[in-house]
Design a protein around this nucleic acid. Structure first.
Lengths: 113, 113
DNA sequence: TCCATGCTTAACCGATTGGTTGAATATAGC
DNA sequence: GCTATATTCAACCAATCGGTTAAGCATGGA
């Protein structure tokens, strides 16, 4: 779990994962969008691999990477434990707003980020 | 997002968050379970605060911390993007079929705290 | 066979991390 | 006012991080 969240804690690696959501990518393809050396990209990919987030298949001289969703599911589940805190809060906010608006016409949904 | 995942990438801080799920905790209370100095715990708490994961209220000489679920919800949503990768049956079948090439069955389950 | 390609490894660098200890700050209670 | 308590701040340390450049390995293709 340490390795998973650590791997996700870098924008470059998160971008690579998003890229891999579109299908298989070689190391070179993953590195292309970034203004970093191939060696640096290789390290990022190794970090993702170490976290179990991707799997690598050596095909000739190219290394093809695939998304490995297991650890993402685990992280999602870990965060899911706290779901009640933001749903509770939204519920509480909802109750407050409804109570305040008891004398008013209503229905303003705020979905903020 | 960088700060959020980075904060989550440390077992001590994750443990502190779990603790805070039980309600308000002072800095001392959060630090207690760990064999680290109060100064080290203070840094961890500052990292959580910097990520927006907790809020601090200074009450007299004690600092009371409270869980702030917003960033957790954001991280959860970010991971949710990949949900189809672990729930989509067709994708799972695809992975199995591709795994035949590697002639390798890989069963890696990570059960973390 | 020779060379370009795809990628990794090694050595290095500056910044950050997680930890320490010791001093400082502020409040609570006698 | 004095002292214990709660916590931060500052300086320091070793380890890790993200990046570089240069070299090394395989592989693919003419």
């Amino acid at each position: 779990m340490d390795a998973v969240f650590h791997a996700l804690g870098d924008a470059t690696r998160r971008h690579m994962l998003r890229d891999l959501a579109g299908g298989e990518r070689t190391v070179g393809q993953l590195a292309a969008p970034f203004a970093i050396s191939l060696a640096a990209a290789s390290k990022h990919i190794k970090a993702l691999e170490h976290a179990g987030l991707i799997r690598r298949e050596v095909r000739g001289r190219t290394h093809v990477c695939r998304l490995e969703p297991g650890p993402l599911a685990a992280a999602h589940a870990w965060l899911g434990f706290y779901e009640r805190f933001w749903t509770d809060r939204l519920d509480a906010l909802d109750r407050i707003l409804r109570a305040e608006d008891a004398t008013r016409s209503q229905d303003k949904e705020t979905t903020d980020e």
